[in-house]
Design a protein around this nucleic acid. Structure first.
Lengths: 232, 232, 232, 232
DNA sequence: CATGAATGAGTCTTCATTCAT
DNA sequence: CATGAATGAAGACTCATTCAT
């Protein structure tokens, strides 16, 4: 009922594709994959079912595109956060976590799809999700490894630590997605970073972290290109 | 037009109900809720469709029963872990985490259903899951609160800490469920507990923790009554 | 929910059969044939499904028995009404109509089953109903025939007149069954008889008719044997 | 996995809807509501099950549409019969009855559905049918009322008379529907009208009535627009 | 490029009937 | 005689996908 586009503006291929993806994101996030019929999406986007199949191979294909692009965007955010003049380790951690959280909040619909809808959707997506998780974990592992060598952190088992680390962040986001959504997720960033710094037994200075987070958020707000998930 | 008394051993109502639940748990965990037809379950359990509906109102009802019983069992495990002669805080934490992990491993199928399948199944279950998560988080909060008062732990924001704490544990389990399943999840218990103790900045002694975990596991292995999830 | 017999009184074959028929009559009249499951009837009668099939071949068989016995009873009533020392024709008509109406009211449940439920149930019952209607009509025809010969009535076409005659009576009853049921059907007897006497252009005296109706009703109220539909 | 553009002539939406309704009318009239599966109707109409649900919400919806349209048509016929330059009361009665009978004969299938199938179908339809009967009766009542005032008819109780009146007509039609169907129902019109005129003790002239009936039938045969029940 | 009517395999669910106990 | 758990055929309805226009 919402999402109804009335005036059929003539759009170019890319714009229409983007329109479908955005509409689908909103509807899928709200109703869930199985509760959403292709017709719901096409009605929402003001196009015909036939047109939908001109842009996507099938319903799962659309979902996969949405999923992949979401993931790509979130990874881009991480890359961006790390692509900074070298600075203290704690600062880097802060930037990455801050950017992730900022992104999840910015793309709430997409995030919900990726973190909640896609889970347990079907064996294919489960594997996809598992792979992504594995990659996330292994990314963190490769960051923790040298830190451990240099005795900047204290961890018992790197793999477990990385998994717990990711889980801590994800759960803060997921709980927010599932209900606290009115509150400001970004306010959780600082406590979360502190929790994780402590978990790794890393030296840190709260003020420095706080500052890094604020800087990161500000940077992100000003670099709009980064965010346009559907660009190109 | 009906009948064919199967050659199977005649089972009593409760046993048959249990048989259906167990069969369903295995199939649902493997194929997923939407990919599993009622007939898959009945075929698996060697009963007719009609019989299924003799024991459960419908497919969702079965799932809900499975879900609720799983959750109840896991909570029982926690209660059991805490129902011990008072001991150090670190020891209690260790026992609870160890028991959870032990339970998840023991009831792999059920756990997968609860932690992966039920997520994003439909609005009703999403809410159910959200409620359980909220309760878990708030349980932890009420444990952390007094510890913080007594300055036994250092946390910036109790709610965020509790959420991160739960997420860390869940993710270790979930990742294991999703692929590492051949490995022994229990080996992750010690590193996980250490990670979390550090995260809370709590004093702890690794050996003591290790010992608590081992004790806990041993106790659990010997108290078989606790485990029979479907018992009466 | 109603109809629940709680104390299992031990009954003899015939009594149990009667119990089932009576329970079925009440439930079928209320919920309709297709909306009533065999289990509804057995629950209502406080017996098991198995027992039901000990007394009746199947659901349709029960219905047929109910149907036939109802019809038999109503015909008995007609016979009884006519089995009187000869009297005026108008009086005879009055007695028959009065007895019918009295019976329909007395056996409201059964009547509803026969006149409403059975209609359009399935081709077999349709034919059965048609046959009964044909017989009713032809009964009336054979009454009207000699009257016409003797010029005591004026009818254009005996068959049409008989059909219309039956229809008039039935509709008064059916409308009552379908809603007016709180009102007293017997009050409609006099106006109905007058309507029909006029329709046949027969000489009649209102007071005499009124008296016949009253007499008939009184007789019926006092002859209880006649009514026990399940007797035999 | 779908399609097979049938070789049938492509029909527009309204035509296809009409095709389904007509097919359904024929099959439902023959087999009865509960004995007819949706697939029977779609097979009969040469369409797929899916298409059926494109045109009707569900099986009951189809039946209701059929029911309502039938009733509307029959009422239209009555209106048409009365929409004539004023004439004698007897003539008006004749025209209305003639038009009804003519319509029932013309729409045999539909009539059977309305008058036989719908009876006792389920509580909803029972009430619907009851309402229609109540309305028919009350229509007749409001016609009889003034006639009684003006002493043009003699009736004892208007409500009973109206009910009997309707019942007489209906039964003539219903009996015909149920078996006499080869014979010509219209031949019953004159005797029926005479029966009813007499029943109301109304003055009438057989020849005039006969003429009115013939005129009515002729008019109806020539006004084809009136009949297309599914038109627009 | 766009449309949307048509398709039909696939699912859940009911319930009359049986028969081992 | 009585029981009621078990059966499975039958039927209503959904929805992703196609293709003639």
């Amino acid at each position: 009922m919402a999402f109804k586009r009335s005036e059929k503006i003539e759009l170019h291929k890319d714009e229409k594709r983007k329109l479908i993806l955005e509409t689908a994101a909103a509807i899928l996030a709200q109703k869930g994959y199985h509760q959403t019929a292709v017709k719901d999406i096409t009605d929402g986007a003001g196009i015909s079912v036939g047109t939908f199949y001109l842009y996507f191979k099938n319903k799962e294909d659309l979902f996969e595109k949405l999923y992949d692009e979401t993931w790509k965007t979130l990874r881009n955010l991480n890359d961006y956060a790390l692509k900074t003049d070298s600075c203290s380790v704690a600062k880097k951690f802060s930037r990455v976590i801050a950017s992730s959280i900022w992104g999840y909040q910015k793309f709430k619909d997409l995030t919900k799809i990726m973190m909640i809808e896609a889970v347990g959707l079907n064996p294919r997506f489960e594997e996809k999700y598992a792979q992504i998780m594995r990659q996330s974990v292994s990314d963190i592992e490769s960051i923790l490894e040298p830190l451990k060598e240099r005795e900047l952190i204290v961890v018992f088992d790197i793999k477990v630590a990385a998994t717990a680390y990711i889980g801590a962040i994800h759960n803060v986001i997921t709980c927010w997605l599932r209900g606290d959504a009115r509150s400001n997720l970004c306010e959780s960033t600082l406590p979360l970073v502190v929790f994780l710094m402590q978990a790794l037994n890393m030296d840190f200075n709260v003020d420095e972290i706080k500052q890094s987070i604020d800087e990161m958020n500000e940077e992100l707000e000003n670099d709009h290109d980064l965010l346009d998930i559907f660009k190109n």
